[in-house]
Design a protein around this nucleic acid. Sequence first.
RNA 1: CGGGGUGUAGCGCAGUCUGGUAGCGCACCUGCUUUGGGAGCAGGGGGUCGGAGGUUCGAAUCCUCUCGCCCCGACCA
Length: 573
Amino acid sequence: MRWSNYFLYTLREVPSDADVISQKLMMRAGLIRKVAAGIYNYLPLGLRSIKKLEQIVREEMNRAGATELLMPAIQPAELWMESGRWQKYGRELLRIKDRHDRDFVFGPTHEEVITETVRDSINSYRQLPINLYQIQTKFRDEVRPRFGLMRGREFIMKDSYSFHTTRESLDQTYEAMRKAYSRIFNRCALDHVPVEADTGNIGGSASHEFMVLAQSGEDAVVSCPHCKYGANIEKATSKFFDDETEPAPAAAVEDIHTPGTKTIDDVGRFLGKPTSQLVKTLVFDTDLGPVMVLVRGDREGNEVKIKNHLGAQWMEMLPDTRFEEATGAPIGYCGPVGTKCARVLADYSLRGRSNWIVGGNRRDTHTANVNPGRDFPEPEYGDFSTVFAGDPCPRCGTPLELYRGIEVGHIFKLGTKYSESMNCVFLDEGGERKPMIMGCYGLGIGRTVAAAIEQSHDDDGIIWPMPIAPYEVVVTVVGKDENVVRTANEIYEKLLAAGIEVLLDDRDERPGVKFKDADLIGFPLRIAVGAKSLAGGNVEWSWRRDRAKQLDAPDAVTARVIDEVKAARSQGL
RNA sequence: CGGGGUGUAGCGCAGUCUGGUAGCGCACCUGCUUUGGGAGCAGGGGGUCGGAGGUUCGAAUCCUCUCGCCCCGACCA
């Protein structure tokens, strides 16, 4: 491609609404352009990277035995009513009406459609297992889209769905997908880690997320440096710890005057005790009614764990306006003794401890020496707190490390959640009707490209990994000298003939502009043809990653660059 | 959905408090010079000042409503 004929315009200044590196660079380099909040144009250069990643994904999915199809972006509401998600999915689901006033959704995911599709065609165990995938535009009406392609509302995703007769069969496919995902991310040279994850809106029994480690990541993950345990912070557990307190004989309940102590830190300071010796009380509003959760004062409640334990459809922190009405206690002084909350949960961090200091359910009052079972009904114990860096690994006890990550893939063992609600059944060998056992596997295409940039850039721009670079080589024409132009064109033609993805920078621009643009866009390899070096019979080539310039004759450089591209392409294959 | 901010040329911004008919940098066009890391000089084109209503002789500026966008929080594959 000749740049002078191409639709590629870089920006010197960063649009003011960009806030992460990948978004700034993608906009500046002319890869994407925002059309509305969370909705982007994929400009020609950006589309090339997207298409290249899609191709890698296709190759690996096909290799793993999956089959591509394409489902509609617009889906009838009936399907969502059938699965129950028309009610459950919430405002993130974009609902639209057609001219007949019938309800549709713009698909945020495709469990319903695929389940119906398979249900209509597959009846026998002989036809299973099957694994179907698509690469398609989805829409989720995010509360707050941000970070460019990392959290758009409209986005491109690869999603696959597998159907099985047995758990074992699902396990096999799940494992095959796990391997395929690792291969995909390895081929893109992405530093990633698979972690255990919560299943969220999709549901199911087990799931793993693929995280690309990056400062700008929206998710926190814990990882064990010793045994490779890894989990999303929402899900992560650590070994039970009881290092702070010796169990003591239960003492008599005692009220303490604690004026003006709204927070747990206030109370600790006032009483001169570490917060680890206090009990923190959280109250959540749920569809099952208000729920009180007690955690050790220095720990944090984990809403996902709590919600999963309760089996609640929705849950949120009790709003201040309703607090006293629901709990009977002023904010800051809520506690389990005599509370109006019907359900009281307590984190494992409190198990076995006695003589708690808790809120007194009256203004300016805490109560000491409170003992569960004696002063209030024994609470439901469970893992309700969030892991901190340094907590012992649940498997091997090594202190856990905490990272930020970008979730680029998420795989689930769905089980029969959708096949049961949507009657997707097969006949087994004995002629018995059984719901199919399902898995689903998502991979964010745009997000992965953005993650690659987050992970590979410098002050001057993107440093593309070769496999998803929009072009592998840029040939920069330096100046207007006839020889220069001719030589550059010859090199360009030879690279094209060799099947190299090459962009010829034949624009009428000064060299500095061209070099800055080449760095910004981040072509892995650059060949610069200029009068000075050409006078000595040479042209110059360099890698974007170190920009070390090397001179040689045009033919030699051309041959060398072809070799380098081919070598880089084959890496990870 | 709560709190805050913002909307003026393709991009980045000033002007708004104190009303007088719109400006700067980059980009774009023309000319000359320049030509290996975002050139210089000179000239030029481009804006319903987010929208609607109101106040006023006069509104980018004041008032009311509305829409978009951004940030923090809540929420979320």
